[in-house]
């Protein structure tokens, strides 16, 4: 799987990756879900037209059951700026059933030396998502997902994952200093360089302070050794508009502290889907 994805995204080996995708597979990226023979053409031609030929400077794979999460860091051959890309595969280890991918489109624009609006304009039309309004409060019903409820409270990392989730789920910013190691390396979408704990504090605040009735929902978690991948989204009201921002986070946990985190969202696709939003201004 790893080789097929690397070859497709660095050299344009479409056939190699296509042979790993089931006929019924779908590819979900940029807030659009693509099926059929054109899906990979659409994704790859967009990527290659901006990133061009590139190399993989770092990669990591997390596997649990039918989940395989591949984090690749690309570097275009003509520009030494890195681009983070995460592929969350559903696979039986022979074939791929679905791909949920997030690329840092702001890094892509920077690395390809294109205006953000050029990259944005070329993204596929997003699905006509309809977010029905709902009560984001739990009212003591225990209906809201926490990591320990999905992975099991007995799992070693359950406690730290709950503390990490409280950052986004409950705005519990004080947890940052408790759960991140002092020298933690934190990669967040739209930033060219690593951030430290103080800048993470500002990043979380910059999102949650612009929203009311925020609600973070876990979709899936995969744990593989020291690494944890989490698929989730943030909902909230921005004025009278409801927004949804999907994320994939990859954490490295050592000695009960987060030492490395990459949290990706697709900023340009988000801005295209929610043109009135100022979340990333």
């Amino acid at each position: 799987m790893l080789d097929s994805i690397i070859n497709a995204f660095t050299k344009g080996d479409l056939a190699g990756l296509n042979s790993k995708l089931l006929h019924s597979a779908y590819w979900s990226q940029h807030n659009a879900t693509l099926y059929g023979s054109e899906k990979l053409n659409t994704v790859l031609s967009h990527w290659l037209s901006f990133a061009g030929k590139c190399t993989v400077v770092d990669h990591h794979t997390i596997e649990q059951g039918n989940h395989c999460i591949i984090h690749l860091t690309f570097e275009p051959i003509n520009n030494k700026v890195t681009i983070n890309y995460v592929f969350w595969l559903e696979t039986n280890h022979l074939m791929i059933k679905s791909v949920k991918a997030i690329v840092d489109t702001v890094q892509l624009a920077t690395a390809s030396q294109h205006e953000r609006k050029q990259v944005s304009a070329s993204l596929p039309a997003s699905d006509p998502l309809m977010i029905s309004d709902y009560d984001q409060q739990d009212h003591l019903q225990n209906d809201i997902a926490w990591p320990s409820m999905l992975v099991g409270k007995h799992i070693e990392k359950a406690e730290i994952l709950d503390a990490w989730w409280a950052l986004w789920g409950q705005n519990q910013l004080s947890n940052i200093d408790k759960i991140y190691s002092e020298n933690a390396i934190i990669n967040l979408s739209g930033h060219k360089t690593h951030l430290n704990r103080d800048l993470l504090f500002e990043y979380v605040l910059s999102k949650t302070s612009k929203l009311t009735r925020t609600f973070a929902q876990l979709e899936d978690i995969a744990i593989d050794g020291q690494h944890v991948a989490i698929k989730w989204f943030l909902d909230g009201d921005e004025g009278s508009h409801k927004i949804r921002l999907p994320f994939i986070s990859i954490l490295k946990i050592e000695s009960n502290h987060i030492t490395n985190e990459t949290t990706l969202c697709d900023v340009l696709a988000f801005n295209k889907s929610f043109p009135l939003s100022t979340l990333f201004e």
Binding site: D127, M130, S132, Y134, D135, A145, Q217, D235
Partner: peptide, 17 residues
């Protein structure tokens, strides 16, 4: 119509709306 939800609050909201 493109209604998508994950989790119980969102599912309840979808059906209620």
């Amino acid at each position: 119509g493109g209604r998508q939800a994950v989790g119980i609050p969102g599912i309840k909201g979808t059906i209620i709306q």
